[in-house]
């Protein structure tokens, strides 16, 4: 963030963004539910050029055992970028400070969404692997992980989605890609519970007035309708036979 002014590319041409989008337009999102067999639940997501796998294991026995909570499940979460995920050089493997922080705030999103008291004394693990990153990976990862959790059958209050809003010049713009992310001054990733619009993840840095922050939240909630719809489509698709209508086959 807050990258250099050196060789700063033009981010808006004729009122459109570099990839032709409007300011309030999402990139294309496609989710495939349950692509992995071994995991209790999984999802594969393509969001613009982001390619992300999310998987869930558990509820299973807590390891190490002394961490077990007899009243609820404990949650573990790992967000990680693959060493080959970025256009720049080979990344170091293992979590860096950024990934550690993201893993923590993502975990807190799902501590809210999952009904942990349904599984006392157990552990649930969420893995988010960024195979290819193009800006907004934490938002995309959360969106995928929510679908993975649903396919695992783990009880949840809601299916959270996430998206980021940034600022290009004086204008707010939805869903930054990597170039916009690198050369803009503000970025606000958010995760939201669609049933009541409660904000479960909110991070921001840059320069925004409070009015712009309020508008950013509204833009995220608006975009959430499209993201939620794709999450639902991916889940329902699992249970539809090829060539059949959206309704289940009648007896």
């Amino acid at each position: 963030m807050g990258g250099s002014s050196l060789n700063k590319p033009t981010l808006v041409i004729n009122g459109k963004r570099t990839d032709g989008r409007d300011f309030n337009e999402l990139r294309k999102i496609k989710i495939t539910a349950a692509p992995l067999e071994n995991a209790s639940g999984s999802a594969y997501l393509e969001w613009g050029n982001n390619k992300i796998l999310a998987a869930v294991y558990g509820p299973r026995e807590v390891n190490p055992r002394h961490l077990a909570d007899s009243t609820k499940a404990i949650l573990k979460c790992r967000y990680a970028m693959a060493p080959f995920s970025s256009l720049s050089e080979h990344g170091r493997s293992g979590p860096n400070r950024r990934a550690t922080e993201i893993s923590k705030v993502v975990k807190e999103v799902f501590e809210n969404a999952i009904l942990l008291s349904e599984f006392p004394g157990s552990q649930i693990e969420i893995y988010i692997e960024i195979l290819q990153g193009d800006g907004g990976t934490r938002a995309a990862g959360i969106t995928a992980a929510a679908v993975a959790l649903a396919t695992s059958g783990i009880q949840m209050r809601d299916l959270p989605y996430a998206v980021s809003v940034g600022k290009i010049g004086e204008d707010l713009a939805l869903d930054f890609n990597m170039i916009e992310d690198n050369y803009s001054d503000s970025d606000v990733p958010m995760a939201i519970s669609p049933r009541n619009n409660e904000v479960l993840l909110l991070q921001m840095d840059g320069h925004m007035t409070k009015e712009e922050m309020s508008k950013a939240i509204d833009m995220a909630i608006d975009a959430g309708k499209i993201i939620s719809a794709e999450q639902r489509r991916a889940l329902k698709e699992l249970y539809e036979l090829r060539g059949e209508s959206n309704h289940l086959k009648g007896e």
Partner: peptide, 28 residues
């Protein structure tokens, strides 16, 4: 004092938009 420079929401509890707005006003 003029602009919001950084925000971090933590822990499992969520915040509604009006609560975030109140927090921004007090912080300013």
């Amino acid at each position: 004092g003029k602009a919001i420079r950084a925000i971090q929401k933590g822990l499992k509890g969520g915040f509604f938009k009006n609560e975030i707005e109140d927090a921004m006003n007090i912080a300013l």
